[in-house]
Design a protein around this nucleic acid. Structure first.
Lengths: 103, 103
DNA sequence: ATCAGTACATTGTTATACATAGTACTACTA
DNA sequence: TAGTAGTACTATGTATAACAATGTACTGAT
């Protein structure tokens, strides 16, 4: 019964984290989970979608026999992050207004 | 391509407005549309759901031949509004943190 | 007579967050 | 050395709900 994460914000959060450095999927999921409950089965599709839109690039690195797929934010990704941040600020003020009574 | 309204926030916005006085569906839609784009076909189901959960009560009033169905917030509705407001505050701080880089 | 606005309702679709489950490897431990 | 927990990614299925599109029906203005 918590607030559902809308796509745009999910994208924004992932891009926000990655704007500080590369992460591989599992570690990124852990990182996001520090603040919001999100499952791997949500995260991986999000990452694939962001990559498909050229907001992220990937590279693989073997680690202890397993593979780690790292995600790196692109220039377009940074532009997208700015967009989403702007939308988010707008969104917050609109909801704040309405939820308080909307006068 | 705007941020999708999650159910809980939609509920919160409607309850927020109605915490200031009764509205009928159409006027309420107009009111909310001042701040966020929302269609009637979204609003009416929301109102019915909130009523089903006893967060709203209704009464009909004829006006110039047409009917106006007024919605009034209940005590449970006010309690729900408080809940959602709390969730919203929490949600905002979580997203703010992540979108800024999550450190 | 026509069109815009008011007021509510119904149906269908699409997108997507999430649950569930599976694969496969490592490392700890009893 | 068998068993368990953690790591890392993938695939499938489903339920929900916001929204589009459409319809009905009345009023009032041009």
């Amino acid at each position: 019964m918590a607030i559902q994460m809308p796509t745009e914000l999910l994208d924004g959060c992932v891009l926000g984290i990655l704007s500080n450095g590369d992460y591989y999927g599992y570690a990124l999921t852990q990182k996001v989970q520090e603040d919001i409950p999100i499952s791997e089965s949500t995260m991986y599709p999000v990452l694939r979608r962001l990559k498909k839109n050229n907001f992220l690039s990937t590279y693989d690195e073997p680690f202890q026999g397993r593979n780690r797929r790292y995600y790196r934010i692109t220039r377009e990704g940074r532009a997208r992050l700015n967009e989403v941040t702007t939308e988010w600020i707008e969104f917050k003020s609109q909801i704040d207004k309405l939820i308080a009574g909307g006068d």
